[in-house]
Design a binder for these strands. Structure first.
Lengths: 211, 211
DNA sequence: GAAATTTTGTTAATATTTTAACATTGTTAA
DNA sequence: TTAACAATGTTAAAATATTAACAAAATTTC
């Protein structure tokens, strides 16, 4: 499973989310073209992804929703679950916590860190907030593997270093400033401004095309 | 410029951000490998992207930071600027507004919408908040082209429909639920959960490899 | 002033990702 | 019962994206 295409991994996560909604609606089976419609992709791509993970549906009945959810879980989730910390309990940090609240996922946000004394010691949306000094102990004690960075840009680099030093294995950086980490730490940069600029670019293009 | 690769568009936005920081530091020239280092990509890729936009640097001196910033601006920005609205002034909506505050970009968040009467009529981080009923008029009056959706998942579909009806040209959906829009509206789905699940997957993979 | 070095710009090769094509097989319908 | 249909699974082709290779030229070093 190690060599699944990166894009397939992303889509599996998305398929699962869509499938969970279907399950809630009482749907037991689903066709590749239904999944495709939801995700704005083609049915071939869905079938290809499922082929890659070795799942086979029923001809003319489609895929068993429950089975598929479980299989995707076996592939992308860690069996014991993975604990996550958020550094920066500002608007973005809290937004992410709320996103996850209630989701019965193998991913659990178990700690938050902030510099603001008013926040430290509190429990915010179910997540206890610690000071930055406590990072090494908290990360070790709670077996935290992944860190999400939602601090202001100026603190990006220091935060990344602190996370690495504390033994984190993966970082998701929401800061607009790219950071450097040793190669054994998996790093995903996600820049919200870029996404918006991209949308604006294609809107502009479309307008210019029309005129 | 229409046929620049999608990935190049994204990277141009990122290059510009990096270049702006360099400019602040007083750097006048930069090498392709320096840009590459910041963005965690290869120098060849940087040079190739710049080739595609027809920018040429100075041999052995690198690229002129100021010039390059301007050129990227000419390519990805709309000359008159593009106005943006945020629907959902919760944590995520406010986080995005703060991200943009102070950035002298051609993209301006000029209106927010929310369902909460306590927020309506207020100015939040410099952005006035309107009720959903006012959407058509506000979007028309303020010439808003792009809408960012930061509402709870249950409102995703209705919000998208309302934005389309109001004449929006591009939508950036931060909701975990994909939406449908007519094909003339540019849609970018961005799912924060997927990104985190991806990081967790690769962390898990690395651990399994080690054992 | 010649050789070595460094950096750009570009073409060619490789790798990845998506899409097309189609064989297969249950199911429905005539 | 047999033909038409609708869905899966898979191989092959096409499109997209990245990386390698290298020529050209300015700068530095000897």
């Amino acid at each position: 499973m190690k060599d699944l295409p990166h894009k397939t991994i992303e889509r599996l996560s998305q398929y699962r989310r869509a499938l969970l909604l279907c399950l809630d609606k009482g749907k037991t089976h689903i066709y590749s073209h239904e999944i495709a419609k939801i995700q704005h992709i083609t049915a071939v791509q869905v079938r290809r992804d499922l082929m890659l993970i070795g799942y086979t549906g029923t001809l003319r009945k489609g895929y068993n929703v429950k089975e598929l959810i479980d299989l995707i879980g076996h592939i992308i989730d860690s069996e014991e679950g993975i604990n996550v910390a958020i550094v920066g309990m500002g608007n973005l940090g809290r937004a992410l916590i709320n996103y996850f609240a209630g989701k019965r996922s193998k991913l659990k946000i178990v700690a938050g860190f902030d510099i603001n004394p008013d926040k430290i010691g509190n429990i915010m949306s179910g997540v206890p907030c610690f000071s930055l000094d406590e990072m090494p102990e908290v990360i070790a004690a709670r077996n935290i593997k992944v860190g999400i960075m939602t601090v202001p840009a100026d603190f990006a680099s220091d935060t990344a270093n602190a996370l690495v030093k504390a033994g984190i294995k993966g970082i998701l950086n929401y800061t607009p400033k790219p950071v450097n980490v040793p190669k054994e730490v998996y790093l995903e940069e996600y820049d919200m401004i870029t996404t918006l600029e991209k949308v604006a670019f294609y809107v502009k293009m479309q307008e210019e095309e029309e005129s």
